[in-house]
Simulated scan of single mutants.
Amino acid sequence: MAEALLSSDAKAASHGDLRDSVLRHFAIGDTTFRVITQTCAVTVLLLLGGVIVSLVEGAAPALHEFGFGFLTSASWNPVTEKFGAGPAIYGTLVTSLIALAIAVPIGLGIAVFLTELCPHTLRRPIGIAVELLAGIPSIIYGIWGMFILAPFLQAHVQPAIIAFFSGIPYLNEIFSGPPYGIGIATAGLILAIMILPLISSISRDVFNTVPAVLKEAAFGIGCTRWEVMRRIVAPYTGVGLVGGIMLALGRALGETMAVTFVIGNAHKISPSILGPGTTISATIANEFTEADGKLYTSSLIALGLLLFVITFIVLSISRLLLMRIEQKGAR
């Protein structure tokens, strides 16, 4: 009897040791996982801080020399070392807004068609075809825009647009000038094509998250398809749609090579969107290898800092919009 009790005690002790060993193993695994993920998060913050410090340090001579006037000046003369970021900021914002104005309605329309109207046999082929646009390198878009799209716009589209708006006040200034083919509008059109698959893909995935029972209930009470999209799908997916649009805007703001090919690279502010212009990224790409002076190089780095700030502001605005949409949804 005593031997049986000793044997049972030994087994209980061995089971207890095994349980403690397993718990220690789990604790070590959890601690290791937490340390690794925390290290990754801190590394990202350190890299971001390093980029900011490098940009500020590199841009300091130009900002000290030109001050606030660097943001508004249209001068860009390496010979006299007079630099201003006004035309580059203007071109960056205008081309991005043109791209959004074209891509957002088309991208949302594609997403609605793929999720609500397209036959099931065609949804996957059409979706894959749209997503393939995102895999084309930006330099290919630039070459295509320069040798195919720009000559077509110059010969057939821009002359008709200029003639149509010639007698309309204010609009005749926006759509005026000789038909160059290349210019701000062409760059905006190329950007729209580039961000179109991003908007359509995200919107389609977001639309697919809407519970079918909500749409079926709306159809059951007599709502049309348009009313279902406007009153059920759009409010339910508002956060995702805004996030996708802002992500596409971030892509448009920082695009370089495609824009460089077709925007004309003229450092001036033109009232006409058909005229040539420049962007921050295009100016940096064109002139950084030729910058031979400290002030010249610092001015280009200052442009990079401005692009970083603009992107940060856009992302901050998107977060505020998302928070407001989420608060409305909570109410």
Rank of each mutant, 00 (worst) to 15 (best):
I317M: 08
N265Q: 13
L5Y: 07
W226R: 09
G69S: 13
I202G: 01
L108D: 06
E216P: 10
V210M: 05
A85G: 09
S138A: 13
V56R: 01
R231T: 08
L295S: 10
A212G: 13
S75K: 13
I102Q: 03
N286C: 00
F288I: 05
V22N: 00
L133Q: 12
L133T: 04
A185D: 01
A187F: 12
T95P: 08
A185L: 14
L241Y: 00
G188P: 05
E116P: 01
P119I: 10
S176H: 10
A248M: 11
Q154S: 15
V44F: 04
Q154V: 08
G69P: 02
S8D: 12
I310D: 10
I273D: 06
G329L: 07
M146F: 13
V213Y: 07
I98A: 12
A103Y: 06
A74K: 04
T39D: 11
S316P: 05
W76F: 13
I221D: 08
I161Q: 05
K294F: 00
I199L: 03
N265A: 12
L108R: 02
T279P: 04
I313M: 00
P197Q: 12
L149H: 13
T260P: 02
G238A: 15
E290Q: 12
S54L: 12
V42Q: 12
T31A: 07
T80H: 10
G109H: 01
L253E: 09
S272V: 02
A10N: 04
S8A: 14
I161G: 03
I245P: 00
P235L: 10
A13K: 03
F312R: 04
G107A: 04
H267C: 03
L117S: 10
T37M: 02
L5I: 06
T237S: 15
L5R: 13
L249A: 15
T209W: 15
F66G: 02
V130A: 11
N286A: 09
A10W: 02
A248V: 05
